[in-house]
């Protein structure tokens, strides 16, 4: 990645003739900067993320890297490209091109919260990373991930009855992913759950008493939130940002 400083991105060079103390320095003193600034930068990204309910702590990040040093995906799992410090940095400066490149990794965050625990600046790293991922998804730059589909399946499962129906979640999610359930292991597991009295799924699933009143409220909230997000300002385009 090229060397980038925010000030170089946002300030523009004076156009035309430049005279300093009576000396004409036009065209010499700052020409090298062009090669150091890769286009395009989009300040709209940071603006969008910090306006989201879970993205407000983006600007508190000081880039110390404590989150990445402890990150279970980066360190324990060895997925070196998964670097939360860098994800936050790219969002802060608005390095769109690079974000799109690393974007397909963001969904793999497991929300283990080691980063949130350790951050000396109080950044809720996992939440901000999820918001950056959401930005990329909603602008169509990165496709929907398996984890996004799982979160949606989980939410609608819970909202249906108030209590999670684990077996139904497994069924609907796997079907949605186009993975047929393996017959023998599923039957084996189903049998074990049945004999131990744990197979309360589908029509036999448990539900929260009084959920009939709570459910429409939550569904309305989802709908409102979806509408508000669509109206959320996207910030200036990359071209405007550079000017």
């Amino acid at each position: 990645m090229p060397v980038v400083e925010r000030s170089l991105v946002e300030t523009s060079r004076p156009p035309g003739k430049v005279i300093l103390d009576g000396v004409d320095v036009t065209g010499h003193w700052s020409t090298f900067l062009n090669s150091r600034v890769p286009p395009p930068f989009d300040p709209g990204i940071a603006q969008w993320v910090r306006q989201q309910p879970l993205g407000a702590t983006l600007d508190q990040c000081w880039q110390c890297g404590t989150c990445t040093a402890g990150c279970c995906l980066h360190t324990d799992f060895g997925l070196e490209e998964f670097n939360p410090r860098r994800f936050l940095y790219l969002a802060q400066v608005g390095y769109d091109q690079e974000l799109v490149r690393v974007g397909p990794l963001l969904w793999r965050c497991l929300s283990c919260n080691k980063c949130v625990e350790r951050c000396p600046k109080g950044v809720r790293v996992d939440e901000v990373v999820h918001e950056v991922g959401r930005y990329l998804r909603e602008t169509g730059k990165v496709p929907e991930s398996p984890a996004d589909r799982f979160d949606s399946a989980y939410t609608s499962n819970v909202l249906a009855r108030g209590i999670l129906d684990e077996a139904a979640l497994y069924r609907t999610y796997e079907r949605g992913e186009g993975r047929p359930l393996p017959v023998a292991p599923t039957l084996r597991m189903g049998w074990r759950l049945l004999v131990s009295g744990r197979l309360r799924t589908g029509p036999f699933a448990r539900r929260t008493r009084g959920w009939g009143k709570m459910r429409p409220v939550l569904l309305r909230m989802l709908e409102e939130e979806r509408r508000n997000r669509q109206r959320a300002p996207r910030g200036p385009t990359p071209e405007e940002g550079r000017r």
Partner: peptide, 23 residues
Amino acid sequence: IVDYNCCGATEVKNVSPDVALVL
């Protein structure tokens, strides 16, 4: 707590931050 409901775990907050507080 008799009529409890699911707490939303870590999943619901990624869909709707507000629902993830109400649950």
